[in-house]
Nucleic acid binder design. Structure first.
Length: 600
RNA sequence: UGCCCGAUGGUGUAACGGUAGCACAGCAGACUCUGAAUCUGUUUGUCUAGGUUCAAAUCCUAGUCGGGCAACCA
């Protein structure tokens, strides 16, 4: 199964309270078309929590024939960077590829909102170019939307609010503003005239004042029970260059002011965000309703953000892991970032299935990592090429197999997919097997190789361990075995049952590979429960070993996924080079034996 | 403290006044040239107290517990 093709066994479209709302709107034909958006701030890398949101927003667009805009919510240039803009685009494209490309809304590069007049009212609108539009308009370049695309329009809206007496310029210091708002007191500057406010606001824009000297505030209700209605800030002065607009602006709109207006300008119908914005919703509505906007208004809906066991998902903490070199970078395969997960070998399909499986609610729970792990295994089981590789080798010699003889044995590439075909694996007198597959003193229920015992070599012969060779200090050197030479596929005794089957690699043909064995980054389910997540870093989250691989793995590619039989799923890392194989262990196979052995 | 939101097995979710279901995890078994996968079976749940109703996980009231907000961050 190709990585690019969509998995036809993906779960049916889910149902949740937000989709129920959208479905009701579709039934009532409330909007001509459903339009969502994914609006990250480019101040960090996207992680699996964002993946949940991406799957929700693009999923809704997919299921209801709508569009989902990708928008950079870039209203705070002090914290944002073009590096993040680029990584966000790459991660979103990867996650929705071959799934929701058709729903991705972009804009023609450099395009600003059109100024329209509707019902005699001024209106700003920036339509999305869908995949179909983009195909028609070849030669044009397309890019994500940016909140900063609308700075002119947002500024206009601010002036409109001032003219309507719904906003004022405030001279209180940040500390004073806090105190007044906390105590529900009106700013002494609250009742300036529209003319004075307009003049001051224009001078703020012109750069007459230093940072923090003045703000533009909404005039709502200084003593409202909801703090976000206590004359919230709309604009602040920041003499900072912006990664998109350069030096054009020294005042920047706050999130609350910019976000609802960006949604409106893009024609968003359903503005879906996480629970912490719930208390902002009245402000979102107030701003839009205070302006005379001719088109249907967007509405905000909130859902619970993802919390995952054994993981931290806050940008600040992830940034700390990177900055303090506790991981190798944002795309370290141990990171819960989308790029880290991708590098580790997880497919976009697996991530999407996970997002579907966990559902959407307003309940703040912690999802067990086993749900993620299941989605990864389920996906990889279906698509992985099976290969033989030995992680911790011990040598065995088949004493009744002629020296120098090489047999090419048939091996199944993927038992879950007949079209994957077969390959040849070389067999010879000297082999490597896994250290764990031999026990001199076998524990109970040990089905593998033991002195005098028999085991099947996968795709090859049944062998019997005749002799354990040790060096002077008692270290295990090699095993000398005999093979039942009639027991291979098609042979006279091929149907003989032995309890265990183990993997192996021909010593002379083995290819070395660097193998990175990843484990969870933290040792406890809630790393930040005591406020000191770094204390719980797993010292064994990465182990690097050299494995012995069957020769066909020389041709491994980054696009392919592999299962080293009986061990785990692996993906070629981007550190691999011609002649140097590097594999990441994406996830182990389930291991019932490990569980059994632990019971003792 | 004020305001807002939430609560269904171990975990995540469904049931929209009428049989508490699904997934993961767990356990037991079957099958197996992967101790994987697959298949079968199975343990475990409506926060508490009142009320409305023939009937409440669902509606109402109060409480308990949990989360969020109270940045010139988003």
């Amino acid at each position: 199964m190709s990585l690019e093709n969509e998995d036809s066994t993906a779960p049916a479209a889910p149902s949740d309270f937000i989709r129920d709302i959208v479905a009701a709107h579709v039934a009532k034909q409330k909007y001509p078309r459903i339009h969502t958006r994914f609006p990250p701030e480019p101040n960090g890398y996207l992680h699996i929590g964002h993946a949940k949101s991406i799957c929700l927003n693009f999923g809704i667009a997919r299921e209801f024939g709508g569009i989902c805009n990708l928008r950079m919510d870039d209203t705070n240039p002090a914290k944002e960077d073009i590096e993040y803009v680029e990584s966000i685009q790459a991660d979103v494209n990867w996650l929705i590829s071959a799934w929701a490309d058709d729903q991705l809304g972009l804009k023609a590069k450099g395009m600003s909102p059109e100024t329209l007049a509707e019902d005699g009212k001024r209106d700003f609108y920036l339509p999305a170019a869908t995949q179909a539009d983009r195909e028609q308009r070849q030669g044009e370049n397309f890019e994500p939307f940016y909140a900063s695309d609308y700075f002119d329009q947002i500024y206009d809206y601010a002036e409109e609010l001032i003219e309507k007496g719904k906003a004022f310029v405030c001279d209180l210091t940040p500390d004073q503003t806090d105190e007044y708002r906390r105590n529900g007191l009106e700013s002494p500057f609250r009742n300036r005239t529209a003319e004075e406010n307009l003049d001051l606001f224009q001078r703020m824009k012109a750069g007459e004042f230093a940072d923090g000297i003045r703000t533009l505030r909404a005039k709502i209700d200084a003593s409202a029970p909801n703090i976000w209605l206590r004359d919230p800030l709309l604009y602040r002065i920041k003499h900072v260059e912006h990664h998109q607009t350069g030096k054009k602006w020294c005042i920047y709109p706050m999130y609350d002011f910019a976000h609802c207006l960006s949604d409106y300008i893009e024609g968003i119908t359903h503005s879906i965000c996480t629970l912490e914005f719930e208390v902002h919703r009245p402000l979102y509505d107030w701003i839009l309703e205070s302006l005379a906007l001719p088109r249907p208004l967007p509405h905000q809906y909130e859902f619970a953000r993802l919390a995952l066991g054994y993981t931290v998902l806050s940008k600040r903490k992830l940034m700390q892991l990177v900055d303090e070199h506790l991981v190798t970078g944002w795309d370290d395969p141990r990171m819960p970032t989308i790029c880290g997960i991708r590098r580790r070998g997880v497919t976009a399909q697996a991530l999407r299935n996970f997002a579907y499986n966990i559902g959407i609610t307003k309940y703040n729970g912690i999802t067990d990592v086993s749900v993620l792990e299941f989605a990864i295994r389920e996906d990889l089981n279906k698509r992985s090429q099976r290969r033989l590789a030995v992680l911790r080798p011990i040598k065995i010699v088949i004493t009744n197999f002629p020296e120098g003889k090489v047999e090419e044995l048939d091996a199944t590439n993927n038992p879950e997919d007949e079209t994957a075909g077969k390959r040849k694996v070389p067999f010879s007198r000297e082999l490597y097997i896994e250290r764990d597959d031999f026990a001199e003193v076998p524990p109970p229920k040990f089905f593998r190789l033991k002195p005098g015992g028999e085991v099947r070599l996968k795709y090859a012969y049944i062998i019997k361990c005749e002799e354990v060779v040790k060096d002077a200090s008692g270290n295990l050197m090699e095993l000398r075995c005999t093979a039942d030479l009639d027991s291979k596929m098609g042979g006279a005794t091929s149907a003989r049952k032995v309890k265990g089957t183990i993997h192996w690699v021909s010593a002379a043909h083995a290819v070395d590979a660097e193998v990175r064995l990843y484990d969870r980054l933290f040792t406890v389910a809630e790393p930040d429960a005591d406020g000191d997540f770094k204390k719980h870093l797993n010292p064994h989250s990465l182990e690097v070993i050299t494995a012995k691989c069957e020769p066909c793995l020389k041709g491994a590619t980054v696009a392919e996924r592999y299962q080293f039989e009986r061990l785990a799923y692996f993906a070629l890392d981007l550190d691999a080079q011609p002649g140097k194989l590097v594999f990441n262990r994406t996830i182990t196979l389930k291991d019932a034996w490990a569980k059994e052995a632990q019971k003792k």
